[in-house]
Design a protein around this nucleic acid. Structure first.
Lengths: 346, 346
DNA sequence: CCAGACGATGCAAGCGCTTACATTTGCGTC
DNA sequence: GACGCAAATGTAAGCGCTTGCATCGTCTGG
């Protein structure tokens, strides 16, 4: 009877309408939609026809309420403003799509507090499982996930010291490898433009890795200028300009990611500095931008797609109640461009 | 009684639990959450305390089901892979946020069929209103929106020939303006790298605008090589490489957007061509990338943020049942970089 | 020819919330 | 001190769907 008055015309059709039209019960219609093989071919055809004729689409809220699951996963990434997470997320989504799962994306602007809110929001919306970036977040966030028993996996970071399920690469290790290359080319006066480290373990580990490697080479941490700034091209540009006023002027600048490096590069050009003849610049992430700036960046290649796909699989397994294997460490290797060269002659 | 058995421990608390704990009825709790001023301060405090203690969060599905609205808007953009829509969407989201509305984003990969699916999905999820990009979409999509009576607005395009509510700029007009500048600099041998035009009115209007303007200058359409390709840096690069093998070789290449232009630029570098001395390249959109490539792109500045904010306001008005004004045309002006120069001496 | 089994379908009880309507309470008035 | 009104709160009817359980044929084997 619900929309029996749907003579009204622009009422949204409900299961009941479909059932009436097909001459079956709502239960049967529901089965047709969810478990088609539990219904005879004949009825199924009739029901499907009714569905089509009415333009019926199930009401998501009602379905979630009754079934207690939504076939929806959530992902909270720090930012959508640049393409850092785009490729990985794309792969994540593709993999979920294969399994009929919808992805809801939210962004936290690199703020653990905002992220907590987003977690809450996604849970409220019924996300069956969550993809999170990095390990840093409020205790409350973790408490929430545990209390609600929401399967989740951490990506973009593999940290041997963390026990929770994750898939990613070791930011520290990767940055050390890159730094080693820089040192090998003779650089000793090196500066770092890092992303904001608070609440961002990836940024922190990258910076720490660089400093550790330099320390190993006999460069004390106190000799290394570090500027911290929000990821963003113009921030990278500003930071670079500032850092190049130091004495001694660094011969190489390690950037926390490609976005910062791209900014640094454009500053260098404006300042009339040649890269890498006058100063070397490195990035991290190997996003598309790394290839199109001039010169192409020497950076760290991150297995974005592999990570996204892998994260999806882990989450899928978790949400089915399976216990997936341990955390997965992927490789992140130095990728040579042209922005890193030997130290300039004095 | 619902989770009276929640002795269980890890049950999700419901309104009823909160009500029991605060010693009031569920109705009162609901009011506390939705219309706090209709409840006495005393009870409100007690209820809120219970909410906090229990870590209660309303069940979205149930709420949507009962209230018949979700305070959720949807947006379907063609792609998240590059930053074309990022800034506008950000502004859109910020504006909605101010009004307590959550944004759900989906992407259609520039496919009208996929978009239709996404529209359906967002509607099923209860989106109260939708933001759409451009006018091109399947009849069914429009039928759906009308049938369900979903407020919606078209952005990124202002087309005087279209009657539906929109906010954006005139792609055709803007591209004509840019083309005029190119012609003014003496270029006569001009090629176009366009985005795929089918199902994409923005791409179509941009290409058409360029061709029209050239026609006005006496260059017949048949003399203008046009390559169509999916937006993407490497596609732009490939297209450019191909187009530069034409005879006569174009002295200027108009790209459908900055992403294609960035690709073209990197191809040019690889081919040893100087920009703009040997060949001029233009973009469209003025996204961040336009500034950081070498040389910075001459492009068309698009008022991303203004468009996003405006779209949000229109949609908010619509969803409140107000009738907003007519469609809004914003300006998109040529922005000079260094990638467009005079035609090279013969 | 009938008991038993099984596949297809219907019945109806919720899922957790909002909200119209009913009820109670507390005040100010005369 | 009784009355009326408004504010505060409670009652209960759904919102549209899923699903455990009951029912009904139909088919099979003895």
């Amino acid at each position: 009877m619900s929309s029996a008055q749907s003579e009204n015309g622009s009422q949204v059709p409900t299961l009941e309408d479909v059932a009436a039209r097909a001459g079956v019960s709502t239960a049967t219609v529901s089965r047709c939609l969810n478990t088609p093989d539990r219904v005879s071919t004949l009825t199924r055809d009739r029901v499907m026809a009714a569905v089509r004729e009415l333009g019926y689409a199930p009401n998501f809220g009602a379905r979630a309420l009754a079934a207690k699951r939504t076939n929806t996963f959530g992902a909270i990434i720090p930012t959508m403003e640049n393409a850092i997470f785009a490729r990985g997320l794309q792969a994540f989504q593709e993999e979920l799509g294969k399994h009929g799962i919808t992805l809801l994306v939210a962004s936290s602007s690199y703020s653990p507090e905002l992220e907590e809110e987003q977690i809450r929001a996604l849970i409220a919306r019924g996300a069956d499982a969550l993809l999170l970036i990095g390990h840093d977040r409020t205790d409350k966030s973790y408490a929430l996930l545990q209390q609600r028993n929401i399967p989740h996996v951490v990506a973009w970071a593999f940290d041997p010291s963390q026990s929770r399920l994750s898939i990613g690469f070791d930011n520290n290790k990767a940055m050390r490898a890159l730094t080693r290359e820089v040192l090998n080319l003779g650089h000793r006066s090196i500066a770092i433009i890092s992303g904001l480290r608070e609440g961002n373990d990836r940024a922190r580990e990258r910076a720490r890795g660089a400093l550790q490697e330099m320390a190993t080479a006999g460069i004390p941490e106190t000799d290394v200028p570090v500027i911290e700034t929000h990821y963003g091209i113009s921030n990278g540009a500003d930071a670079f300009r500032k850092i190049m006023q130091d004495t001694p002027r660094p011969t190489a600048v390690l950037c926390g990611n490609d976005v910062l490096a791209a900014g640094a590069l454009s500053s260098a050009r404006q300042m009339g500095l040649r890269v890498p003849e006058d100063v070397s610049i490195t990035g991290f992430d190997d996003i598309e931008i790394a290839d199109i700036v001039t010169p192409p960046l020497t950076t760290v290649h991150v297995p974005h797609r592999e990570m996204g796909r892998g994260a999806a699989r882990l989450l899928l397994a978790l949400s089915r109640g399976e216990i997936p294997g341990p955390s997965i460490e992927l490789d992140a290797k130095v990728k040579w461009g042209e922005s890193l060269g030997p130290v300039p002659e004095a």
